[in-house]
């Protein structure tokens, strides 16, 4: 059972079950806990190879036991996500913890990843359970529906959930090369039905410079 203690510490109550969490993110625990490094995020040999090839690497540990375990990472804001059979797409660097029952994998993101310097792949989380994602500043959750498509700055995007199509928009024109660009040359447009998480801060990316 995930719960937030303040906005920057995740508390997980466990009764013999397990969670997957970012390596080294445990700050305290109460009770009996065992920590085990998961090579390749517990996705097996195939997952390990995929992650190595795609560059979407993450080091996870499995925490198992009885009691309460607290997680935090560099005072990042933590957001809880409930999954009910749907899929969450998140940057591996923004993932803090998931229920061990959730499946993680990698997926191709196309040009969006390239524009924010995160590589061409992203992490997917699937199944029934809870996940905790991190953001620089509290995330704003924006709903996307058929009448309300959403456009997001790649540097502020952290995750999305639901049945969404994403397309990459580039506003690079000859003016960009003359130093008079609009400053928002790369954007991702989400259409469909779901929610998008954005953080009130932009990662350094090549998109931020044009």
């Amino acid at each position: 059972m995930f719960r937030l203690q303040g906005s920057k510490v995740l508390a997980v109550d466990m009764t013999g079950d397990a969670v997957k969490a970012k390596n080294g993110s445990m700050v305290a625990y109460d009770g009996q806990m065992a920590f085990k490094k998961l090579s390749g995020g517990g996705e097996g040999i195939r997952g390990m190879v995929t992650r190595r090839i795609t560059g979407e690497q993450m080091t996870l540990m499995e925490v198992k036991g009885q009691g309460t375990c607290w997680f935090a990472d560099r005072a990042s804001e933590i957001n809880l996500v409930n999954l009910q059979g749907d899929k969450l797409f998140v940057e591996s660097s923004n993932l803090l913890a998931t229920d061990s029952g959730l499946r993680t994998g990698t997926s191709f993101t196309g040009l969006r990843g390239a524009s924010q310097g995160n590589g061409l792949f992203t992490t997917t989380i699937e199944g029934h359970g809870q996940a905790a994602i991190m953001s620089d500043g509290p995330a704003v959750v924006l709903r996307v529906s058929s009448q309300y498509p959403l456009t997001v700055d790649p540097g502020a995007y952290i995750a999305h959930q639901g049945n969404l199509r994403q397309s990459f928009q580039s506003g690079v024109t000859f003016r960009t090369f003359m130093g008079e660009g609009g400053g928002e040359a790369f954007q991702i447009r989400f259409e469909g039905d779901g929610v998008v998480y954005v953080q009130p801060s932009e990662r350094n990316s090549i998109a931020g410079d044009v």
Binding site: N82, P138, A139, V140, L142, S145, D193, V195
Partner: peptide
């Protein structure tokens, strides 16, 4: 519209 109960924070849309 799909809902995500317990997502925690408020989900915003243009309205």
């Amino acid at each position: 519209m799909t809902t995500y109960p317990g997502t925690g924070p408020v989900i915003h849309d243009p309205s």
